[in-house]
Design a binder for these strands. Structure first.
Length: 506
RNA sequence: GGCGCUAUGGUGUAAUUGGUUAACACGCUGCCCUCUCAAGGCAGAGAGUACGGGUUCGAUCCCCGUUAGCGCUACCA
């Protein structure tokens, strides 16, 4: 019997990290142990389901790096893969269940049941339906149907224990008495989740059901349906819930939860995949947690999956992202960064010259970035040089009060006054000259230079910035970038007007 | 209310399934490096394993109870 697994999302919203993790574990299982993975869309909730979400979910799964063998987007021998187009299948099975007596029609109205629920609840027995409709004869049923009484189809639950195997929880045993007679088909003809899922899993020959543990309590219900249908049970594996920092189920309330959000933010798929796998699972003893998709597959072991719920920690996700960002192909980072800068209107058309320059920007600003969308915020300073404002900044003023600071700025200006000098190429010799002329070194040398050129007292390495300023100033950008000379002149002027530099000095 | 699941530093996990100074990663703190901020390197703080009982020479690990969190108890999935 080949392994057949499935990921069965409801198209009622974006793909959430919790569901994505379930998909990842299914995918890892298939990659590790062999078999096929299929996607099935569970859209029996007609009001909440939207087909656009189906597309988004598939797109996000692909982005994460997952693939599958059968699904609504690519067909397969067990289709259709959308529950809304399988209603005839459910109806046919329900009919035969009715014929064999494993199921029966129930005419109780929702209001009636709601009233009784309150009373039975007190007695502790979870039997929302009194099961009185069980005893109707075929004739009575036909009569009521003819009188157009709305009816649902319920499973006639047998008494006794219900047992099933769970790869993460071990053998599970429930008493069927706590299950009630679950509804298989609603009065409008649409099957319920529990019934549709079982019919599909059975017909699609699913061997392993890996899903969230919110379904654990539903499983005895489903096992009973398998029994009624006369089908063998799959092996289950109920994965723990993912929680927000407040230890409640992760949801939109916690902010960033959809894959879409992280992708937009500039989180690399390999980082997210790596992190998601580590939620409720860890590689053996002293193995590194940083694992490529191939390594993830190689060391994955479903039996090592943890039973307890895990808190989603975006800080750790960003740790992985920083790592993969540093490792990834520079052209990939440049593409993303360019897109972000364009979105901010800082870039216009991206030709090879611009790309090359963005490469420098990325290289300079990447260390310390959690995710690539921070590039626009970080790089913004390249455009926003304002000497007048800068000289009022507290940190900048502290630098300017360093002994010899004015002299350094002055000397640098002197060095740059030779128009023919290539600032980028000769940068180190320019610095050398400033050093010997001013008599300053180290902090007292570089800090004033940094401040005069950038208006800030911190940032990437100076020589990188110099290349970026000079290169940027040559490009046709929506907003011009000032070159070093312009910056210096402006800054020098601001110092003069504030009396931070003796006006007689040059 | 009933039923079920879970419980190791702030977070995610480890601990040859009863014998360890309870380990690793993220985060945090400090140091080194450095023109700065990051990055990187190094070091450190932080849990006696939810609580209470057993079983045992010995329990993170086995059993019972309690508590807390979560789930199911829908003509939601």
């Amino acid at each position: 019997m080949p392994n057949r697994l499935r990921f069965a999302p409801s198209p009622t919203g974006d793909l959430h990290v919790g569901n994505a993790r379930t998909a990842v574990f299914n995918w890892l299982f298939v990659k590790k142990y062999g078999g096929s993975l299929l996607i099935r869309i569970e859209d029996t909730d007609r009001v909440r389901s939207e087909s656009r979400f189906e597309d988004l979910i598939c797109r996000d799964l692909k982005w994460l790096g997952l693939d599958w063998h059968e699904g609504p987007d690519r067909g397969g021998p067990f289709g259709p893969y959308r529950q809304s187009s399988r209603t005839a299948i459910y109806a046919r099975r329900a009919e035969s269940l009715l014929e064999t007596g494993s199921a029966y029609r129930c005419f109780c109205s929702e209001e009636e049941l709601g009233r009784q629920a309150l009373e039975t609840r007190r007695s502790g027995v979870a039997r929302e339906c009194p099961r009185s409709c069980r005893k109707f004869s075929a004739r009575e049923v036909a009569q009521r149907l003819k009188d157009s009484h709305p009816a649902v189809i319920r499973l006639r639950v047998r008494s006794g224990k219900v047992v099933f195997q769970d790869l993460v929880h071990g053998e599970m045993t429930f008493d069927s008495a706590v299950v009630g007679d679950p509804i298989l088909v609603r009065s409008n003809g649409i099957p319920t989740y529990n019934y549709a899922a079982v019919v599909d899993d059975g017909l699609m020959k699913i061997s392993h059901v890996l899903r969230g543990d919110d379904h654990l309590s539903n499983t005895p219900r489903q096992v009973l349906i398998y029994e009624a249908l006369g089908w063998p049970l799959p092996v289950f594996a109920h994965l723990s819930t993912i929680l927000g920092p407040d230890r409640t189920r992760l949801s939109k309330r916690h902010g960033a939860t959809s894959l879409q959000h992280f992708r937009d933010q500039g989180v690399l798929p390999e980082a997210l995949l790596n992190y998601l796998t580590l939620l409720g699972w860890a590689p053996g003893e002293d193995q590194s947690e940083i694992l490529s998709p191939e390594e993830l597959v190689a060391s994955f072991d479903i039996e090592r999956v943890s039973k307890s719920s895990a808190v989603f920690d975006s800080q750790k996700l960003y740790f992985f992202n920083r790592h993969y960002l540093k490792e990834c192909d520079p052209s990939r980072a440049v593409d993303w960064a360019s897109a972000y800068l364009r979105r901010e209107g800082l870039l216009d058309k991206v030709d090879s010259g611009v790309r090359q320059w963005v490469g420098l920007v990325v290289e300079a600003f990447l260390p310390g970035m959690d995710h690539l969308s921070q590039i626009s915020q970080k790089a913004h300073q390249l455009w926003s040089f304002e000497a007048e404002k800068a000289v009022q900044d507290e940190g900048v003023r502290r630098v300017l009060s360093l002994p010899g600071a004015a002299r350094v700025v002055d000397e640098l200006r002197n060095q740059l006054s030779h128009e023919e000098r290539d600032v980028v190429r000769e940068w180190s010799s320019i610095v050398q000259s400033v050093k010997s002329a001013s008599g300053q070194k180290g902090r007292r040398l570089f800090h004033p230079i940094r401040v005069a050129l950038t208006g800030k007292d911190s940032g990437p390495e100076l020589d990188k910035l110099v290349s970026i300023f000079e290169g940027g100033s040559q490009l046709e950008l929506p907003h011009r970038i000032k070159d070093c000379r312009a910056r210096l002149n402006e800054f020098h002027g601001a110092m003069l007007s504030r009396g931070l530099i003796p006006s007689c000095s040059r």
